[in-house]
Structure formats: C-alpha cells, structure tokens
Design a protein around this nucleic acid. Structure first.
Length: 234
DNA sequence: TAGGCCATCTGGTCCT
DNA sequence: AGGACCAGATGGCCTA
C-alpha cells in the first residue's frame, strides 16, 4: 500500500497479537464502562441461558466480530473515497462548490494536496447537491422564459417531452437526453404500477412540477447520466 | 505540543 | 443465532 499523507497503512493482519488479545486484557480499565469478561454473551437477548464459551471460543467470536466491523468500516471508506474522488476537483476551485465557506472545509484551495477529510467530503457533497438543485431551478426558469419568448403554444416539443430533462455537465453546457433514455427514465421504479403522468401542455402551470418525479416518494428531477464521469472543468 | 483525523476494538441494539 | 449498525473509548500519525 502506498504511503499517503494523512493515510496510514492498517494492514495489520488478522493474526496480529494486538488484535487477538481482548482490549480489556491489553489495557487496564479500557473498554468502556460495561466491559466485563462475559461481554460477548451478556448482551444477547435470549430466554435461554447463554451457552458458556471457552476462552478460545470467545476469542474466536471476538475475532470474527472485529473482522466484520473492520470490513464494514473499510467498505464505508471505499464509498467515501469514491465520493471524495468526485468531490476533490471542486474543493480546489476558488469558485467551485468548495468556495462555500464552512468550518469543516479548507479555506480556499487545499494547496498541500491532502485528501479531504470525511466530514469535509460530506459537507462538500451536500453543498454540491444543493448547487445542482439550484441549477435545475434556474434551468426551469430559463426554459419557461424561452418558451414564452417563442410564443409556443399547445404541446411540448418532443425533444422536451417524457421526462427529457436538460442537465448540466459543465458551466454553459445544456444536454438533452435521447428519446430512448427519456423512455427509460419515464418509468420511475417508485411509481405505482399503472401510474401515468398527464401529458404536458407547453407553458402550462403544471409543467415545472411535471418535470419532477411526482411519485411523492422521491420527488427528484429525472436526471439522465450520459457520462457519470463528466465533470465541470476546473 | 496540542489538536485534528483516523483505524480499531468493543458493547449495545435492532433486524432477519 | 448471527449479522448489521452505531457510538464510545483508545491510541497512533500528522500538521500547525
């Protein structure tokens, strides 16, 4: 494993003496207020008296539990890294999402190239989502203005129908999904079977609402990711 | 050296 | 019964 600033290699291995040894043995007084020798069994809710475990069995059980927990946290970190990978480009942009100042976010650009902390990643992601939301609002507004300016009446042009949701992959970039993609996203998995949305009337008051999934569960804009890796340029 | 961040251990709780 | 999830405790590493 490569050494990264702020990163530590935790490949200690399953047979590390430190890990095999119960904490209550390793550190006197550590392990929390409820630490005791029957901790592995005492919390199990059962009407039957718990089977007595030998020291070896307790250690084996504890080893399994620790391993699972370690795996769980590692999976969480993998997901966090994936999120970090998406968010890092924005964190270094003085005008990007990271520009929204927050105590958990580094001031300005992170010049050291250190990776984002977990909390910073989450805060940044939240801000990014909010930014996307406001972008969508703005897009709706602009679409409304354009339609009025063109004097369009009647039904919505095919290009913008059936959930064809314009989305941004970068500043000034407006993409429209293909009809196939539009049909694919037209069926929200959360919508009840047979539920149909009413056809849109161009310029109607229900248009903006109809561009958002109306299933009442997700209420999320139908965004089609042509290329999920596409990002705003730095 | 203090503080931030992190991995790991651990016991408790909930769910299947 | 076992697994997932959570939160507290602990100690190590790194940076200002």
């Amino acid at each position: 494993m490569q050494a990264v600033p702020g990163f530590r290699c935790r490949e200690q291995g399953e047979d590390s003496l430190q890990q095999l040894m119960p904490r209550m043995v390793r550190v006197t007084g550590a392990g929390g207020p409820t630490s005791n020798a029957v901790g592995l069994q005492g919390h199990l809710r059962s009407s039957k008296p718990p089977r007595e475990l030998s020291v070896e069995e307790q250690q084996e059980l504890r080893r399994k539990i620790n391993s699972r927990e370690r795996k769980r946290m590692q999976d969480l970190n993998v997901a966090m890294d994936a999120l970090r990978e998406v968010m890092v480009p924005y964190s270094s942009s003085p005008t990007g999402v990271g520009a929204l100042q927050h105590p958990y976010l580094p001031t300005g650009a992170p010049p050291t190239g250190r990776r984002l902390s977990k909390i910073s990643t989450l805060v940044l992601a939240r801000n990014y989502i909010l930014l996307l939301g406001s972008s969508l609002q703005e897009m709706r507004r602009l679409l409304g203005e354009v339609s009025i300016g063109m004097g369009v009446s009647g039904t919505v042009p095919r290009l913008l129908l059936t959930g064809g949701w314009p989305f941004l992959t970068g500043p000034g970039q407006l993409l429209l999904s293909s009809p196939e993609q539009q049909l694919a996203v037209a069926k929200c998995p959360l919508l009840p079977q047979g539920a149909q949305e009413e056809p849109l009337a161009w310029g109607s008051s229900s248009m903006t609402e109809s561009l958002v999934c109306q299933c009442g569960v997700c209420r999320t804009p139908r965004v089609v990711h042509v290329n999920p890796a596409t990002r705003f340029p730095k």
